[in-house]
Amino acid sequence: MTPESLIPAMEVIPVAPVWPEIFLVLTFTIHILLMNALFGGTVIAMVRGIKGQGEISRNLSRKLPTILALTINAGVPPLLFLQTLYGNFDYPASVLMGVYWLAIIGVLLLAYYGLYWYDFRYSSMSKGRRKALLALVILMMVYISFMFTNNMTLMLHPEHWLEYFINPDGTMLNLGDMTVLPRYLHFFTASMAVGGLFVALIGKSVKDPVFIRHGMSWFVRATIINLAVGTWFLISLPPQIMLKFMGEDLMSTATLMSALVFVGVLIYAGFKHNTKLAAATTVLTVFLMSLTRHQLRNYYLEPYFSIDNLPVSGQWSPMIMFAGFVVVGIVAVTYMVRLWLKAERS
């Protein structure tokens, strides 16, 4: 049996693939920014609590449940667009690791509850219990993010799906892939950087130089470390794919090089404690890295699939409805966030 025989037939999509691709990259950028702020912010809250600097930890405790809610909602569109374009790869990967994949729902609910408990019971809990609770929530987030990394890499390797005939119990993971660990650590260190920026932006809003200084310290250090982790991730790729980002493909190389230039700006902004420049450049950098991730996915699937060959029905109404709801949703969420920030300031 060949891997090709295990790949389901391509589904008809309503519009040209370029439109779902654009929305996939844009919505994933929003989702990953929120996810990084959530994960990094939770780690920073725990570390500050351990070191006895409770002001930052307490401030973050009020915001983390809301950030988690926004992260979950922002994660739905990119997942739907991923399934629209790559459903014949994503669904089999999800089934092969089904036990771990379905467990994400329960673990996520527990993490959500844990963050609310941390906020509402902050004053009544001892320091030890607060630390233990946050450590447990972080472990849950580590599980969720690591399972997503496994899913997103397993879908790229139909040749690994043949292991189903040895392990048909839905407990397959992609641990044999050399890119899994650096890919995951690349996300982890990026989360520490964005979490630090999140703390600094809070400090900017409340005019607290301690928050700004501490947040930008996390931001700069994690960004520098992530340069090394990103290099590890790049050289762990198969040579024929790595070369695409090192001059063989002009667009992929330009995207990666542009992201690296912005990383230099990030470090400069961090040292200067320029939160506005750091925030704007972070958004651009994450967008470019999301685009690079999309290109990488297509390179991996080239032997089995080309996105340009997807059959198109030409039905524009679902895309138009989605775009309309996106605009309405952005207005509604912006209004609610403004009310939330106003309440926080008061």
Rank of each mutant, 00 (worst) to 15 (best):
F262N: 05
I166L: 12
I144E: 13
G52T: 03
Y164P: 06
N167R: 12
S191N: 04
L136D: 10
R121D: 08
Q240A: 06
L133D: 02
L197Q: 06
L139T: 14
P8E: 11
F245N: 05
N73H: 07
I267A: 10
Y118L: 02
L24T: 05
H31S: 07
V265H: 00
L181E: 12
T29M: 02
I30G: 01
A103I: 02
F219D: 07
A259S: 09
Q295K: 07
M10N: 06
K272E: 08
V263R: 00
V142G: 14
M257Q: 09
V220L: 11
F28N: 03
A190D: 07
R221D: 15
D249P: 00
L256K: 12
Q240F: 07
D169A: 15
G98P: 13
L156E: 10
E21T: 13
W316R: 08
V47G: 06
L38Y: 01
L175R: 12
I13A: 06
V312Y: 07
T253W: 02
K131L: 06
L60E: 04
V194E: 08
F322P: 00
S217K: 13
A280F: 08
P3E: 14
S306Y: 07
I44C: 01
F233P: 02
A193Q: 03
A16T: 10
K204E: 09
Y113W: 13
L250V: 10
M257S: 12
I104S: 05
N309W: 08
T149L: 15
G324C: 07
G128P: 00
A332G: 03
V99H: 13
A278L: 08
V199T: 02
G196A: 13
G40Y: 11
W117L: 04
I105H: 03
V263C: 01
F89K: 07
A259M: 10
T253D: 03
A111S: 08
I307W: 02
V12R: 05
T281Y: 01
L201V: 01
G41F: 00
G247W: 09
Y91N: 13
T149R: 15
V229A: 05
R62Q: 05
Y91S: 12
P77S: 13
V199N: 03
A74H: 08
M251Q: 14
G329C: 01
H294I: 04
T231S: 06
F271M: 14
Y100D: 15
I67D: 06
L24A: 08
A278D: 03
V137S: 07
I56S: 09
M216Q: 04
A228T: 08
L80S: 03
G329Q: 02
A343I: 14
I235L: 12
F262S: 04
V327I: 07
K276A: 00
N73L: 12
I138V: 11
L82R: 01
A9F: 09
F146Y: 14
